[in-house]
Write a protein that binds this DNA or RNA. Structure first.
Lengths: 351, 351
DNA sequence: CGATTTCATGTAATCGGTAACATTATCGCC
DNA sequence: GGCGATAATGTTACCGATTACATGAAATCG
């Protein structure tokens, strides 16, 4: 692999002149530039970024850690972040923490070692350790999607409390009273927040005894399936389910299917998050949609602003609005006839 | 940020001794080791990987380039690759090329500059330029999912020709003759191969005039929607659609929906690829399932074997088997009654 | 017990670039 | 024609780690 010295020799100049040509970091005559560029092309020369970064202290790479790379919500965030970053001349590397604090630590350490310019982090847990670590190494970090209380850090997310409140209120207004929450894990802020929104809505309707209706698992298909199985074994059964994310919802749908229960005829169901159009053949659940792409964009913008010193001194907290999308579940306890029609229609298309 | 020199000073030793403690690369007395480890912990020291890599020539990082990070097929591949890599002490960084040769070049250059140990590549096009580039820089590369003819390179993929042949034969055996192919772009091997499988099956049934039934777009929801709209404007309409991937299939389903056409009552449909269970509420299409996770695993294994010099000298080509999963579409032209029952049942669950 | 091996640690050079400073050539202008 | 300004290029040192080699001390041994 040729080095800058090899190129310099071939072009009959000194290494620093080659460096100037590459980075436009100093005056070079047309003639010399042409010779150097020819040498670079002939030798197929690529600057060694390890050496570059070592001297110049930082490289234009951003790290993005998400908790589940198979979840379209996070990959859509990744697209948003990448598009903004590319625009500003940064590259983005993705890492998958799999909701594991262990893996998160490993990848953060790796990124810090690599001297990346900044990090976009969906934290696995609400504890500040991970962010402390990054900040203590003077690497800028923006927290995405989830909260980490008690720490000074830029953050971009949606309003999980408000969104959950909207969904549950919707069910309550339809007449449901026994609403089960199929939630993510304790200690993950989006799960905790969705519980808080659920509780708030229930209290508003004068319901305070719901502890047996709250289930906690993980944000996964399997967990949604398992929690739904538990729910279906209880008596009296709830009349509605609130799935805390899209994977949980699909797991629950599968469990209902096994029990020959249909949504919303036999069970109402709402869900936080939804799949992008490209994946959901026919979305039918009432959901809170989060602007995932914009979330990624905003986070990358904020991080890059920090890096170029344009951001205000104070930490920023950006909260993007969610959208309530009312679908089939709305009809559940009110106009069941209408619902049946709708259900059949959708079914025929679907199948 | 403390350096190895700072740590050395604090521990009262030389930098090389610290290096020996970190890498277990030489004898160190118990007493010294303890002092050094204490200093490392106190100063929160993290070795600079740029400097490490610069000297030792290569870092234990693998690059993985996929063409669409939002496609669960590729993220599942990513999981497989990551799990194997972690096991062997490698980290994986993901890059999204968005089917763009331009972006692919940019990211490959970046990874080469970063001196990654090896690259797993889903090539955007069948041309060898990208792989030539990587190989010319002495970086090991394994090609994933797609083929690049006329070049010596390790490769892991599924049999697209065979899979497509199975799907189309299935439709032909059901009595369909006018089968439209909604394909990905020319020049992408998976698209070209699926066309080849389609042609082969058609020829076997004595059909040679199908040129007006072959559509070419991109592997996306929007393209699937548009191609289906074109198909639906033709007369006579085909009786069956073959979608070359999951996104195309969903786009086509949406177009059919708009025209109030149901699958398979009004139109039969099969599809290459399918969504993981966590995403597909209720899969209904007959599909060819590819072992995405295993694909990622095998590719990572092969790459790591190469890096550690364990692989045979000859290039390897691993082709994993696909599975035909027959669902609703099977009934389309034969036992329509049965189908209607099935369709309604699924619909009720679904909605 | 002196010589040789092994252990524990250190010194100097180096990886491939770039920052800071130095040098030489070119030019305009009073 | 001499002088400062600017352009074009080079020299040297250094970023933070590791490799190769060196040194001194302790241990082994005939």
């Amino acid at each position: 692999m040729p080095t800058i010295h090899d190129v310099a020799e071939r072009a009959g100049v000194s290494p620093i002149t080659v460096s100037r040509v590459i980075n436009s970091s100093g005056p070079v005559s047309e003639k010399t530039r042409a010779r150097v560029e020819a040498a670079i092309a002939e030798m197929n020369y690529v600057p060694n970024q390890l050496a570059q970064g070592l001297r110049s202290k930082r490289i234009k790479i951003l790290g993005l850690l998400v908790t589940d790379i198979t979840n379209p919500f996070f990959t859509t965030i990744a697209r948003g972040a990448e598009d903004v970053a590319s625009e500003a001349g940064y590259s983005v590397v993705f890492c998958n923490t799999d909701e594991s604090v262990e893996k998160e630590r490993k990848y953060l350490q790796l990124l810090v070692q690599q001297q990346v310019a900044g990090i976009l982090l969906v934290p696995a847990r609400s504890e500040p350790a991970a962010i402390d670590f990054v900040q203590s190494h003077n690497v800028q970090v923006v927290v995405l999607d989830r909260q980490v209380p008690g720490i000074e850090v830029d953050a971009v997310r949606c309003d999980s409390v408000g969104g959950a409140h909207q969904l549950v209120s919707h069910l309550l207004e339809l007449g449901h009273r026994r609403i089960a929450l199929l939630n993510g894990p304790h200690g993950v802020s989006t799960a905790d927040d969705r519980l808080a929104g659920y509780e708030h809505a229930m209290h508003e309707f004068g319901i305070h005894d719901y502890s047996d209706l709250v289930y906690s698992g993980s944000f996964s298909f399997v967990s949604g399936y398992q929690m739904a199985q538990q729910v279906l074994a209880t008596k009296p059964m709830p009349t509605a389910l609130f799935a805390a994310n899209n994977f949980i919802a699909n797991g629950a749908l599968n469990a209902l299917h096994e029990h020959n229960l249909s949504v919303p005829d036999d069970m109402a169901m709402v869900c936080f998050d939804e799949l992008p159009a490209s994946m959901a053949s026919f979305p039918v659940l009432t959901t809170i949609a989060q602007p995932a792409y914009a979330l990624g964009q905003e986070a990358a913008r904020l991080l890059i602003a920090r890096l170029s010193g344009e951001a205000p001194g104070q930490r920023q907290e950006i909260i993007l609005p969610t959208t309530l999308i009312v679908r089939a579940s709305r009809t559940s306890l009110l106009d069941r006839n209408d619902l049946c029609r709708l259900s059949e229609g959708a079914g025929m298309i679907q199948t």
